[in-house]
């Protein structure tokens, strides 16, 4: 299948933080996300802990179960094995780091159960 990831994950992509600062995707740090979310009126950062990683019926995909936020709401997402998530204090991580590096040139750690990923939710769900 044509399994192209969004081009902003490609090494060298220019990312604009909420304060206007430009950084390359591979240079982003946990603080960049936290500070950008602080500025945002609508978005907030939530911690999403990887609870399970299962294989999918879709080739080259996995189903990742997260426990999201303080209420530990269970959320499942199906993504390609090379899809990178940003792990708190660790950086980009995917289920198949070799493939991520091969396809995107983005250095990745191995995403594992127990890792806490940065995710977004709305500040007010009312």
């Amino acid at each position: 299948p044509s399994s192209a990831l969004p081009s902003y994950f490609m090494k060298g992509s220019i990312i604009q933080l909420a304060d206007g600062e430009l950084k390359r995707v591979e240079d982003l740090r946990t603080e960049d996300f936290l500070q950008s979310a602080e500025v945002s009126k609508e978005l907030k950062i939530d911690s999403s802990t990887v609870e399970r990683i299962d294989s999918s019926r879709t080739p080259d995909a996995v189903i990742i179960q997260f426990s999201v936020g303080e209420h530990k709401v269970q959320v499942c997402v199906e993504v390609l094995v090379e899809y990178p998530f940003f792990v708190f204090g660790q950086g980009w991580s995917s289920c198949c780091p070799d493939r991520t590096t091969q396809l995107l040139a983005l250095s990745c750690a191995k995403l594992s159960v127990g890792d806490v990923c940065i995710s977004l939710t709305l500040k007010s769900l009312r």
Binding site: P6, S7, Y8, F9, S13, I14, I15, Q16, L17, A18, L22, V25, L28, D32, F33, S36, S40, L43, I45, D46, S48, F66, V68, G69, H71, V73, V75, V77, F85, F86, C117, I118, S119, L120, T121, L122, L125
Partner: peptide, 19 residues
């Protein structure tokens, strides 16, 4: 050169809360 907003890179995992 395209510039992408920071939040593009973060998955939006929105739980449906009932409280």
């Amino acid at each position: 050169v395209p510039v992408f907003p920071w939040h593009s890179l973060v998955p939006f995992l929105a739980p449906t809360q009932s409280d």
